[in-house]
Amino acid sequence: MKWESLSAFISMGGYGLYVWGSYGVALLCVVGEIFLVKKRFRTLHKELGLNEKSSI
């Protein structure tokens, strides 16, 4: 295992704030985009009253 402990993993050699600040915001952006994109599609489906089965 590369990391000695969970706290070593979290601290990232003292750069934890910067590493997790980057990955955290990236995660938020991706999750946010997926949510918005799906919401737009579902709302349209509802408004148009479509019966089509959808995988998303």
Partner: peptide
């Protein structure tokens, strides 16, 4: 993401066409 968004744009712009109406009737 782009494919899902393109599908939404297609539905928005083509909502009055015959093929979208077919979807409303549940024709597969």
């Amino acid at each position: 993401m782009i494919l899902i968004r393109t599908r939404s744009i297609i539905l928005e712009r083509e909502s009055r066409t015959a093929w979208v109406s077919e979807l409303k009737e549940g024709v597969t």
